[in-house]
Computed example of a mutant assay.
Amino acid sequence: MSVSATIAHATAALAEAGVVSARTDAELLAAHVLATTRGRLLLAPDLTEEQHREYASLIAARESRVPLQHLTGRAAFRHLDLAVGPGVFVPRPETELLVEWGLAWLRGHTADPVVVDLCAGSGAIALSVATEHPGADVYAVERDPAALAWLRRNAAEAPVTVLAGDVIDPATLADLDGRVDLVLCNPPYVPLTAAGQLSVEVTEHDPAVAVFGGPDGLDLIRPLVGRVAALLAPGGAFGVEHDDTHGGAVPALLRADGRFERVRLHHDLAGRPRFTTARRAGGWQDGAP
């Protein structure tokens, strides 16, 4: 059977199983087995018997809703190719918007900033900043041991300082209090009440500790606001991703703290509230997050 026919058969099977991105996933898994790129599949030779068995096994696993990234062991994020698997949250494209905002802010303010990624997970945010803003002194903080192992693996050869710690503990990064230029965070924020609306890939494979933020999704974000205010230097900036139901709540938390200004809600490409940014009061007056 040709590669195209094999992919067509796999696409039908994945679609029948309810996989929304059936064609894309079938092609990416074929590229993985053939050790090529998706764009070069038309030039690939037919699968050998061994490759066909491997591909069939991967398709069966994807039919059972094992995440594509767990099957390939990789996740694309901006310019990165991250190692991921069981125990770590698979980074989503929506978070790239938060990173883009953070990088744009850095370009307008300082060449050698101190940047902190809280709830770092796979390291997608920290590694993107370190890669795309050379000279940044980047710290990545993660508490969960399983996620921490993936973070250390991804950051092994990167200019990122990895720390195991609780992001709301005043002792974590205490030596940086008042010195940080930018804090970025993608915390667990999904309300427990929304669990039934999530895909099987999330509920059965993403670690719950990285997904759910308590009954209303704000259990971590509430105390995080104060800790970030302590970390930031005057004029430093903060960006935090949140649930689309938090478009009013998160900006309100930042304003209520009293140490932030220029609080702004940002929407994703679908027009949904996705992250909020603010500036630590007391710094320079030019520019704004």
Rank of each mutant, 00 (worst) to 15 (best):
A164F: 01
G135W: 15
L28P: 00
R153D: 03
L118W: 07
G236F: 00
L218R: 12
P215R: 07
A120W: 02
A136S: 14
A35D: 15
L42A: 14
V84Q: 02
E204D: 15
W284Q: 15
D25P: 08
T276F: 05
A140W: 01
A120F: 01
R222M: 13
G235T: 07
A136C: 07
P45N: 09
L58S: 05
V20Y: 08
F260C: 11
L151C: 04
A146R: 09
A12Y: 07
E96Q: 07
T24D: 10
S64W: 00
V84Y: 03
A252H: 07
A171N: 08
G178H: 00
Q285G: 13
T193Y: 04
G239E: 04
V202E: 01
Q69D: 03
R259P: 12
H70D: 08
R38L: 14
A158S: 11
E142N: 05
G236P: 13
D257W: 08
A104G: 12
L82D: 01
T161D: 11
E27I: 05
V180N: 12
P188Q: 11
W105T: 05
L29F: 06
A44C: 11
A26L: 04
A288K: 11
A35M: 13
S199L: 08
A270Q: 15
A60C: 09
T48Q: 10
V209I: 12
H133G: 03
L151N: 01
A126K: 08
L163K: 03
I221S: 06
R152K: 05
